[in-house]
Design a binder for these strands. Structure first.
Lengths: 264, 264
DNA sequence: TGTAAAACGATCAACGTCAATCACAAAGCG
DNA sequence: CGCTTTGTGATTGACGTTGATCGTTTTACA
């Protein structure tokens, strides 16, 4: 049995039952426990599942499944890349930390990997706030403002806000584009909101899949010098990677990305 | 059976029945009492449930009246009264208006009646914000702060907030009690949050069923002179009604189907 | 209010699972 | 043909989980 076949089988069983045991997989596939464990580790790296003692469970196996409908379009495109990036970002989080998540599809994926964490999370994304409040023990803080349904974002044109008292060690940010000019957004209000959030964080970690490296948009949120880390996928252009590194930006590549539903 | 399977099972039973016994879990899962106790301890650590002697109970008992821990049962008894009051309040709303809803069970009922409206709504209740965003065309504004799961309320100890720029014609308020001293809450932070909201509204409409007229609680949110209208049910004591009217407060009685709880 | 029963937390040994490492086999490539 | 790469299975020490037992606390009932 090929590696792909096994992993596809694992995902199928997960979709059916929500949870799988290593021992069962051994019995079904005939492979050794070591091989199955390796498969599970790879699948977890891509964000396709979450390992637990004795097996693995579906990432969406929570109770209430109120998935953000507004992400439908952008969710299907590059969903697996974003899952892998989100899983990598979540693995950098430690209990007790204070973090910031901006509104974005990749950060929303990330929020789903934070169910077992116990942190203080500031986010201007309404769906992320809902997700964390309903399905995690994290403390959730939101800025004041109007809730925009379509974008799922909480926006305010004013400066006064309770989040001025928030202090985070790191902000995880999903953006419109990343160019040598810096972090790019297309909407002025969104750019301003993200700049406000950014001012409350020490370090900045960007969650950008490799399609975000084309120059586009027009609002610069912050320069590259503000960026501590970029989490992307192996599709990042070599020139961009070199440029980022030369600017002192740490570049992490989420694993996997090669396994897909080709056999499905 | 895997640890996660047991925990999922526990949460499912909790969602169905609201309370679980350790002995029952032993019979269902086949695990030992020690293991089940450990599971309950872990789940309590994540905030998924609350342990009680002999088992555990659901932490989210529906839309709870935030400052009434001992009144959990009464909310179902008064559900019809509150529904009638909420419907009456909703009928006072006109499209295009700006209103404020505080966090409370009666205001939550009211939000259900606003699905067809098109207003600007400021609320510090997270469930109400969810309801209006998901099921209405109203514009929704929230204050900044931490989201408290149990109470479903957004609270901030700071003064700075984007809602300082909000202007509403009327605030609909559900409170802990209403006495000749004024509007009463039991929690200082909640009282402060409601006072902040109130400062953004011209008129104040109280949504209080007739059980709220007993003196209790200790934090005065505002005096009776600030109250424009009280919407209650026919169970309101005659003395209280006369006193309110003598203070210039308009008293509306929702056409409740039941009118027997006045002496209870 | 006093007593018995039930439930509780802490502890420990037995067992299962985990990650790391090594050795081997098959496929890819010069 | 020789070399590297990749996938695989077995071994080992570390770690997490489990169930039994103990002494203590809480609850129920007379």
């Amino acid at each position: 049995m090929l590696e792909r076949e096994r992993q596809q089988l694992i995902l199928n069983r997960l979709k059916e039952r929500g949870i799988v045991r290593v021992a069962d997989l051994v019995a079904v596939t005939g492979a050794s426990v070591a091989t199955l464990r390796r498969d599970l580790a790879k699948l977890e790296d891509t964000g396709a599942l979450r390992r637990v003692h004795g097996g693995a469970e579906s990432v969406a196996s929570g109770q209430s499944e109120l998935t953000a409908p507004t992400f439908g379009a952008s969710q299907t495109t590059n969903a697996e890349l974003k899952q892998a990036i989100a899983a990598k970002a979540a693995s950098l989080c430690e209990d007790g930390a204070s973090i910031i998540l901006n509104a974005g599809s990749t950060t929303w994926f990330m929020a789903q990997h934070l169910r077992a964490h116990r942190m203080q999370v500031l986010t201007n994304s309404f769906p992320i706030a809902q997700e964390l409040v309903a399905n995690s023990a994290n403390r959730v803080v939101v800025p004041g403002g109007e809730i925009y349904r379509e974008a799922g974002i909480i926006l305010s044109p004013f400066d006064e806000d309770a989040i001025q008292h928030f202090a985070a060690s790191v902000m995880f940010m999903s953006c419109y584009a990343l160019t040598p000019m810096g972090v790019i957004e297309s909407d002025p209000l969104v750019a301003r909101a993200e700049a406000k959030l950014l001012s409350r964080a020490e370090r900045l970690v960007l969650l950008v899949d490799s399609t975000k490296f084309e120059a586009r948009g027009n609002m610069v949120v912050c320069p590259l010098s503000r960026v501590s880390t970029v989490i992307t996928d192996p599709g990042i252009p070599r020139a961009m990677e070199d440029h980022l590194r030369s600017q002192g930006v740490e570049v992490l590549k989420a694993a996997g990305a090669r396994l897909d539903l080709s056999a499905a």
